[in-house]
Write a protein that binds this DNA or RNA. Structure first.
Length: 246
DNA sequence: CCCTGATTCGC
DNA sequence: GCGAATCAGG
């Protein structure tokens, strides 16, 4: 399998939706979890909670400095950390579960922002004094009076702009948390919940009871002890004819 | 043990 | 660029 645009798209979407690499790999099919992770990194999709994360910038030095005979092991690093370690705005609004994503009608590509280069920087001189000018940032002013984003400056979108192109909801961004048919595998419970055809039909998705297609819980439903004939309940009312002898 | 993501490195 | 092997935390 190769990384077609479509598959990459699915990868991106699912990755950003918080799906695990395994889930993505399952959904895509033909690739391993590692492949997904590797690809994700190459796409620079990283930055998300990882169980193994070197959060300490100093720590990495120790790891990396193994090779070069790193000279003086300074006696004891003085704990001065004058660095104003400014937390990089964590306000990342969690990508809402795709479920809630409004299905926007196909957008006609007609009305596009025209790339007017009105070089009239002076025109809108008093354009809101930037509240926080750590350093003078060169910006140009766009047609509507909006500030163009300076190169290298990528922060503003307080409201995460919706992706321009809607990805095919292929196997991808499933309703978060619900296990779709495409995500079934040998080790997750295939007990159906709801009814096929209904919008929220999905599968249990629990970890399977080893050796069975269902989780322990649903095995309880699926398999019941066979009682001796004599002890069985009197034949209950059969709604629709009952099981056929085969 | 199972899961996770990160990294490395030969291809 | 790709992904198996490996690492390492939960």
């Amino acid at each position: 399998m190769s990384w077609t645009d479509e598959r990459i798209d699915t990868l991106k979407t699912m990755w950003e939706a918080g799906q695990t690499a395994s889930q993505i790999a399952e959904a895509l099919g033909g690739v391993s979890r590692n492949a997904v992770i590797g690809k994700a990194h190459r796409l620079e999709l990283q930055a998300r909670p990882s169980p193994v994360k070197p959060n300490d910038p100093d720590a990495k030095i120790a790891a990396a400095a193994v090779e070069p005979a790193a000279a003086e092991p300074t006696v004891e690093p003085i704990e001065v950390a004058p660095e104003p370690v400014v937390a990089p705005v964590v306000a990342a609004p969690a990508p809402a579960p795709v479920k809630a994503a409004p299905v926007a009608p196909p957008v006609a590509e007609s009305v596009e922002d025209d790339e007017d280069e009105d070089e009239d920087d002076a025109v809108a001189a008093p354009v809101v004094a930037t509240p926080r000018p750590p350093q003078p940032i060169m910006r140009s002013v766009g047609p509507g009076g909006f500030l163009r984003q300076a190169p290298g400056e990528q922060q503003p979108p307080s409201t995460p702009a919706p992706p321009r192109r809607l990805v095919p909801a292929k196997p991808s961004a499933e309703m978060a948390g619900k296990t779709s048919l495409l995500e079934l595998n040998d080790r997750i419970c295939k007990w159906p919940l709801g009814h096929p055809g209904e919008p929220d039909f999905h599968f249990c998705g629990e970890k399977v009871n080893p050796g069975f297609p269902y989780c322990v819980d649903h095995c309880g439903h699926a398999y019941q002890a066979q009682l001796p004939r004599r002890d069985r309940r009197p034949t209950p009312p059969l709604p629709f004819g009952g099981p056929r002898a085969r």
